[in-house]
Amino acid sequence: MTIPTPLTGVVPPVCTPLTPDREVDTSSLTRLVDHLVAGGVDGLFVLGSTSEVAYLTDRQRALVVDTVVGHVGGRLPVLAGAIDMTTPRVLDHARALARAGVDAVVVTAPFYTRTHPAEIARHFRLVAEGCAVPVVAYDLPVSVHSKLGAGLVLELARDGVLAGLKDSSGDEGAFRSVVLGKRSEPGLAGFSVLTGSEVTADSALAMGADGVVPGLGNVDPAGYARLYRACREGDWGRARAEQERLCGLFGMVAAGDPARMGGSSSALGAFKAALRLRGVIDCAATAEPQIPLSPAETDRVGGHLAAAGLL
């Protein structure tokens, strides 16, 4: 299938379950996909930050994509991250993903080397020219150290280079500029504007976002599906109540002790611990060199699940 224009709804960035020896657990991965589909999601995004894409080998990346695309069987659009440092490496990933049957690739700005906005624009143009599927820009300045400006995003959308934006910048003013820019140009009606925020999804949808890409959606896809429906129906009281429940659940990302682990270890470890506690995946292992949650920290994750009515 191809992605709808625009892509709307809940498109979670799918966790990558691992075995205790840090190989991809394909059985748990297919159960996770079934859990997400049953929760009412509208698409799947594999090989993103929540998927631990930066830690996976090319062999593991390919296994994730083949497993998910094969299991979904065209029921939902599958987007996949072509995440790497430079244009030639991204093109290699994007072409492999297109051959594997994904419906769109998700691409960040180049990173490691310093880049000018003109080089970032050239990067996206070259990827779009060299890839057989639509390209969605991934604005992730905390990791790639380059903010995708609203003007650049809209220019590339106008020129047919980008099919959408997944905004994980946390810059709500810039996000609104993209939403307003899209609204002002009928030719951009098919361009997808998606927020990566777990805790302000209702606000983004109220602004006019087309959908949400929440990492926490792995744990509670049905909650985000309810939130999305409430927003689309204009029931803002119901939407706010659901969002505030999800904000409480999101507190699990702080379960890990910051004195001994980084924020990524804590957040990704919490999502995986929650999925294991809910019986979706077999093992909560995260990729090396991330530090695992302790039993006490895992208990804290369980407390958040219980408070949100998920245990």
Rank of each mutant, 00 (worst) to 15 (best):
L7F: 03
T8R: 14
G9Q: 08
S27K: 14
V33A: 00
V37D: 06
V46G: 01
L47I: 10
G48K: 12
S51Y: 11
S51M: 10
T57M: 03
D58K: 11
R61I: 11
V68D: 04
G70K: 14
H71E: 10
L76N: 03
V78I: 06
M85P: 02
T87P: 13
T87A: 00
V90T: 14
A94V: 13
V105M: 01
T108E: 07
Y112N: 12
Y112K: 10
T113I: 11
A121S: 10
R122M: 03
C131H: 04
V135Y: 02
Y138P: 09
V142C: 00
S143G: 08
S143N: 14
K147A: 12
L152D: 09
L152C: 00
L154Q: 10
L154M: 08
E155A: 01
L156H: 04
D159V: 05
L165S: 03
S168I: 02
S168E: 05
S169Q: 10
E172Y: 12
V178T: 07
V179C: 00
L188F: 01
L188W: 06
V199A: 00
S203T: 13
A204W: 05
A206L: 14
D210M: 05
V212Y: 00
L216G: 03
V219P: 06
A225G: 04
G234F: 11
G237N: 13
A241I: 07
R245V: 07
C247G: 00
G248M: 08
A255P: 09
G256F: 06
M261L: 11
S266P: 05
A267M: 11
R278A: 05
I281W: 06
C283Y: 15
A284L: 08
A285Q: 14
P292Y: 12
A296M: 09
